[in-house]
């Protein structure tokens, strides 16, 4: 089985970070995986996206063009990529920032006010992780334990104090 995931938003929203957590989930579960960032001026605040593929087989092209799963964190990303999602695919988006205009009936949309939830719970910058929690709940892409282990791997040692906040964000997303 192969799962292709696209994460997209503004630079600074933690798109690459969330993608890295998913990639490490694949690593923890001994799967094949690839993580590919868009790179360039978007690093400095433009739009940013990240391709993650997790598979039981060796991965061909690491560039995700037709994702099974999409995480969209701003309007331009939602508008640009929602049409690329494979039939049967799932879209997770921040309803605080995105008006989901989409007439597709062959995909499932999961909008949660992740930005608002992050602010309300003192989890500044945690919107991306809340959406990951929602993705975990709706797809069962890995176990909660695997994702927690992945978070522990991805959070740099200097910021280890933030790990509990990330766990809390996952929980919020799962219960949203």
């Amino acid at each position: 089985m192969t799962t292709e995931i696209l994460l997209a938003g503004f630079g600074g929203q933690g798109i690459l970070f969330a993608g890295k957590i998913l990639a490490y989930c694949g690593l923890m579960d001994n799967k094949e995986l690839s993580w590919l960032p868009s790179y360039g001026p978007e690093m400095r605040g433009g739009t940013c996206n990240c391709s993650v593929t997790i598979s039981d087989d060796p991965i061909g092209s690491p560039l995700v063009l037709t994702p099974h799963l999409l995480i969209a964190m701003n309007q331009p990303s939602f508008d640009k990529f929602v049409s690329c999602v494979r039939p049967g695919g799932k879209v997770f988006f921040d309803s605080t920032l995105i008006e989901p205009e989409c007439d597709r009936t062959d995909i499932e949309l999961f909008g949660i006010p992740s930005q608002q939830m992050a602010d309300d719970n003192g989890l500044k910058g945690g919107s991306n992780i809340i959406l990951l929690g929602k993705l975990l709940k709706e797809t069962g892409i890995c176990s909660l334990e695997t994702m927690q282990k992945a978070i522990e791997k991805v959070v740099p040692p200097k910021k280890a104090a933030l790990i509990p906040n990330n766990f809390k964000a996952i929980e919020l997303g799962m219960n949203a």
Binding site: K20, A23, L33, S34, W35, L36, P37, Y39, I59, P62
Partner: peptide, 10 residues
């Protein structure tokens, strides 16, 4: 190339 340089894999 840029793709191989930027991508992460196990």
């Amino acid at each position: 190339d840029g793709l191989l340089g930027q991508m992460m894999e196990p």
